[in-house]
């Protein structure tokens, strides 16, 4: 049985910036409306040749470099994504070969909860097989939304974030919680392109390959389930909101984040957010924010770091990390 430490991290975001001013001009709304609606000033958008896998590979390579490892050292690769490289095989296959990963590879699609789900999955794997694991969250939702869909276009950005876990006798996870409610699968969806509705000329003509959101349902359930998972994780860890040093939520929408803070009692001063610069990067949003906080020297040994996400499905999850770990 083994714990883990986070030995490396890295991010990759496209160079191309789409500001809310530019987007507002395209959609016929003002920049102020977009910013007040979601708190996003600009987002990064892939250019020709950039894909979910290419971003994942770059972030993964940077995380490996930071950890002083190579792909040959990695026993398991997990790629969290809801915008796969292609329907088959898994995106992890492309990352696996590009990084020369020695071990297994699989994808996790828990939508925007994907990184939290992957971290908990990796912690379980590490207990059974104490060897390095690479987790990458990568999404390119700008390619899945209808450019004319105001509700989604203002939110999404592209990017990838990665962490390397290495075995350690210390425990970094103080508590965790995962959950799902499949009855909410209609809130955010792409209906065409799978076995239920294979792609045809007709589905494309109807735009059914684009993501569709019921923003009201997502807001209500995102707040409800994230508040619940945060409370359960803190209770399991036997700590209070005041004990948490850093809050890294899924960077979905500042209105949702502020509501979660308000209803849990978490201190807004402890919030780590880059939503204004990157938008909602889905599975990548938590690892990107975590990596930036680490590079900024914001997180120190002994700090309690709360990761909390929610995603379509719906799924949700939270993990409380004690940075540096505690001896067990």
């Amino acid at each position: 049985m083994s714990g883990f430490e986070i030995a490396g991290w890295g991010i990759s975001v496209p160079d191309q910036v789409l500001t809310s001013t530019e987007l507002g001009d395209r959609l016929g709304v003002g920049e102020d409306w977009i910013v007040s609606r979601c708190g996003i000033n600009e987002r990064r958008i892939v250019e020709d040749g950039q894909t979910t896998a290419s971003l994942a590979i770059e972030a993964g390579r940077r995380a490996l470099d930071k950890a002083g490892l190579t792909g040959a050292d990695i026993a398991h690769l997990i790629v969290a994504t809801a915008t796969p490289e292609q329907l088959s095989p898994a995106t992890s296959a492309f990352v696996h070969t590009a990084l020369g990963i020695a071990g297994s590879a699989h994808d996790v699609n828990s939508e925007c909860s994907g990184f939290v789900y992957s971290l908990v999955t990796a912690a379980g794997l590490m207990m059974m097989d104490p060897r390095p694991i690479l987790i990458v969250g990568s999404d390119t939702h700008s390619l899945t939304v209808n450019p004319e869909d105001r509700d989604l276009s203002i939110l999404v950005g592209d990017g990838a974030g990665a962490v390397v876990l290495t075995p350690s006798p210390d425990t970094w996870i103080r508590a965790w919680n995962l959950g799902a409610d499949g009855s909410k699968h209609d809130s955010l969806k792409v209906v065409a392109g799978g076995s239920r509705m294979p792609t045809t000329a007709e589905t494309v003509a109807q735009g059914l390959h684009y993501a569709k959101i019921n923003g009201n349902e997502i807001y209500l359930n995102a707040v409800r389930f994230t508040v619940r998972t945060v409370k359960q994780t803190l209770e399991q860890a036997k700590v209070t909101v005041d004990d948490v040093d850093h809050i890294i939520p899924h960077q979905a929408n500042i209105r949702i984040i502020n509501s979660i803070l308000s209803h849990t009692g978490l201190d807004p001063a402890k919030l780590v957010t880059n939503l204004d610069r990157y938008g909602n990067t889905a599975s990548a949003s938590i690892p990107i924010a975590l990596a930036e906080a680490l590079d900024g020297g914001r997180i120190n040994n002994g700090d309690l770091v709360l990761l909390a996400g929610f995603g379509a499905g719906m799924t949700w999850g939270s993990v409380l990390l004690e940075w540096g770990g505690v001896s067990t």
């Binding site: 007040s36 609606r37 019921n214 923003g215 009201n216 349902e217 807001y219 209500l220 707040v223 409800r224 929408n253 209105r255 509501s259 209803h263």
Partner: peptide, 24 residues
Amino acid sequence: VDSLDLMEWLYGFQNQYPHIPADE
């Protein structure tokens, strides 16, 4: 007041009056 304000109000209402099946 926008639709997200209405949802935020509704979330508070649901918590305060859980016996009333109000939703979106």
